[in-house]
Design a protein around this nucleic acid. Structure first.
Lengths: 216, 216
DNA sequence: ACCTGAACACCGTTCAAGT
DNA sequence: ACCTGAACACCGTTCAAGT
């Protein structure tokens, strides 16, 4: 990447900013932006694992240098946080069943799935205090559904925390060793089994936390 | 527990006669041993945090060189595992109440306390598959007490896993940022509160997992 | 304002010797 | 057998410039 001086008219300059046409990988952006950086970081993490995301690796993927990145991002920690938010934004938010208890199980399943799809976030989430990481709406849905099941706001928050801790621990213990460029296909059954176990555990916690079905 | 070549401990000793006089830091051992190394590593972790344990730092604490350590330990990973086992061995094992449900709460409290006292083990435990880390007897006690509460062996193992995941997640989210040489004294109330919340969560899980108290 | 190359202060670990 | 110093292949990050 000598970056010859003959760049001529590569700077397409004026208004890229409106609604970006989104051409994230083709071509090679002559100017960095936070969005480009985060997108590239996200791709590296998905393809090569979070432990292979280095400032130099990222820079080379961007056709730039490590130090150029630092002009847009304070440090690697901020980069990771940004990338995590990027991933959270990409999470699906499907329709949820009305019945509170079904709704709970569904949201928990989604939360679990979100972590299974992005196992690299677990250590990052874990080390911050950002307990409500997966996506704020999940936290709100869970607390809301718990209230819908008859819990006070206070106990609902407490119960949510119990579920969240359980979820974090389950993912942490279950997630496959990082490193491989892609998940080995043999992991699919293990993943399904992990999901099954997780949901059983959630159901147990709900049994303990919610008032008995009849005692309304 | 493979152990190195000639795994016999106490090669230095004709008879150390049980209770080693224990002079772990005074003087400077001219010859390294696995035990010295692990003890020194443990002290560094306790005093300066696990993230400050480097091979060079450890070597200098031993009055030796980094490479000398490698003659007794395969790599840093093995060193950490050894140190973790060392810490597990130092855990207290007090009398436990007979009544299974009380026994459960007590063991869970001990497990939690073990992690609070040694927060550095959490990431290490998490990344291995050594789910039964804190100490094997804790796992056995918990499963045993669950069986004592009326669960089948199979469901007891499952319930143990639920509790374990919850515990790991709670510690992970609760433990203070590492780095400081010692806990700030202001952390004591937070620690008590964390313990309280943890135990409430455990009780909820037990409520969900165990047969109703009357339904024997 | 944005980007660059070189350099700093670290890592874990390998190598070729020393005794 | 045990230990050593030097070196390798990395990190994240700072600095002093370049345009």
């Amino acid at each position: 990447m000598g970056g010859g001086p003959g760049g001529t008219r590569t700077r397409e300059g004026r208004t890229l900013t409106g609604s970006t046409p989104q051409r994230p990988k083709r071509g090679r952006p002559s100017r960095l932006s936070r969005e480009h950086i985060v997108t590239a970081a996200y791709e590296i993490i998905l393809k090569e694992g979070a432990e292979n995301l280095t400032m130099r690796r990222l820079a080379s993927a961007l056709g730039s240098t490590a130090m150029a990145v630092y002009h847009h991002v304070r440090d690697k920690d901020e980069l990771l946080t940004l990338t995590l938010e990027h991933a959270a934004r990409a999470l699906p938010r499907p329709e949820l069943p009305e019945e509170p208890r079904e709704r709970l199980a569904t949201v928990c399943g989604l939360m679990h799935q979100a972590f299974v799809s992005n196992p690299w976030v677990v250590p990052i989430v874990a080390r911050g205090e950002l307990v409500d990481m997966p996506a704020v709406w999940m936290t709100e849905e869970i607390v809301g559904a718990l209230v819908g099941c008859g819990l006070s706001r206070e106990r609902a928050v407490e119960a949510h925390r119990t579920i969240w801790y359980y979820t974090a621990g389950q993912i942490l213990a279950t997630v496959p060793r990082p490193g491989g460029p892609g998940l080995p296909p043999a992991a699919a059954p293990a993943e399904a089994e992990g999901r099954h176990h997780y949901l059983r555990g959630v159901r147990h916690i709900l049994d303990g936390v919610l008032p008995a079905p009849g005692s309304h």
